[in-house]
Design a protein around this nucleic acid. Structure first.
Lengths: 245, 245
DNA sequence: TTTGCAGTGTCAGCCAGCCGACATAGCACG
DNA sequence: CGTGCTATGTCGGCTGGCTGACACTGCAAA
């Protein structure tokens, strides 16, 4: 849908991102002209922790997993990005290396804006630094929220909040929330610092309460307001004794 | 010590921060002239989560605690800042509200650069946005590291790594590491998402191994290389069975 | 000096979430 | 249709870290 308007090497979905929408028209056009379209199969590594930065990415279709691993191979998933999302901007500012690995979790359509011309543009038009900074500040805020959830919330609310957050960001394309989250329980566990079994148990509980429907590789949100209520209360919904008040 | 060099409303310690050093001379001078010196007693709140941002801060002396609390009053300490550290820059980019509370943990000397003139400068000299962005990117990287430690490391190494990280950043003034970290065990617990008892137990273990010395409100690092070794290995030092390999 | 308070050391008990194990089910590919 | 892989559901046992409790100890203010 939605035929291109103008020169357009940018997929329409990427232009609809709130960050892209907030950019001055000049910068939007420049990005459109310098973005190189790439389509990748699942399981490819876009970049790895420690790589020198090679520019900015925009995810138009598919899922990209941003994660880090310790020496023993344990994976900590920082985020699973869904369209429309721009990423890879951190190293623009400090010219240091990538903080995470980035893997395609499905067939992925994305654009790549190479580092050199982008830095050249920023040298000529330094006011655009602020726009990149806005993108960066979104990441900081999201990271702070995730960190606090991790430190303070028990598994149940932690899971519920994460599902809601993903539902919002994944639905940004349609301007609404996305009900069907394409996530295996193993992935969810690695995002929440929980075991797969605990995630399953919590999902089952939410499902039994009629808030979710579970399918293979998919968590479908049935009762969004109900899920929000679960996210706010700090006690679990445990099998028995509901009247612990 | 260290008499002022130039116009100098900025304490010398703040000028020695690596971020400040990296700034172009023009921006350094501007900050010196627009920074307003403030001295505050312990226990004051600089700003609170949700406040509209009022500018940039620079910590010259004392400790500032950056934290958030959930509804039940549980506190998650994101960081305890020591001189020389600049902070409060996130909201410059997106004009949104504060992400955390900021409290003085001791008598504090700091400078405040009000939002309005700073934004005016940045409008006139937009290349400075990148410099603010570099400060921001430092925070993102630190936050990512803290998050991964939280997700993957057991209590012992988590504690060891945090002590080392603080030792480095607290010693930035002298360009070396600071051996005596002024932290209560309760504060450490709130930074690491552990209970006070567990922190005490781990500290005792490290102390028994001759790596630390514990005093009231102070953790003194005795054997820095040894502590680094503890931080890297993923198994604990448990009381008994040392030869588990 | 006395009093009070905050930080520390330590113990017992408990239980949430971990791990290992296994059965089952859906999907891809021959 | 089989074969194999991956995701899911579920159980039992274990244990690490939490809670709660209490004694002790410096330090600071009265």
């Amino acid at each position: 849908m939605s035929q291109s308007s103008g020169s357009a090497s940018l997929p329409a979905s990427l232009c609809s991102s709130s960050w892209f929408q907030s950019l001055p028209a000049d910068l939007q056009h420049w990005l459109q002209q310098h973005a190189r379209l790439r389509v990748l199969p699942a399981g490819q590594r876009l970049f790895a922790r420690g790589d020198t930065a090679d520019g900015l990415y925009g995810l138009a279709e598919g899922l990209v997993r941003i994660s880090g691993s310790d020496a023993s191979g344990q994976e900590a998933i920082a985020a699973v990005l869904a369209p429309p999302q721009w990423f890879g901007e951190i190293a623009l500012f400090d010219a240091a290396s990538r903080t995470h690995d980035a893997w395609t979790d499905s067939t992925v359509t994305l654009v790549h804006v190479p580092q050199a011309p982008l830095l050249a543009l920023l040298a000529a038009q330094p006011q655009y630094w602020r726009d990149l900074g806005r993108l960066l500040s979104q990441k900081v805020r999201a990271s702070f929220i995730a960190m606090e959830d991790l430190m303070l919330l028990p598994p149940g609310p932690r899971l519920a909040r994460r599902l809601l957050q993903m539902s919002n960001s994944y639905g940004a394309l349609q301007g609404s929330t996305l009900r069907e989250l394409p996530l295996s329980q193993t992935r969810l566990a690695a995002m929440l610092a929980l075991s797969r079994q605990t995630v399953n148990q919590q999902l089952q509980a939410l499902s039994a309460a009629g808030l979710l429907r579970l399918r293979r590789g998919v968590v479908e949100i049935v009762d969004l307001p109900g899920l929000q209520k679960m996210a706010h209360q700090h006690q679990e919904l445990s099998g028995s004794t509901p009247g612990n008040k």
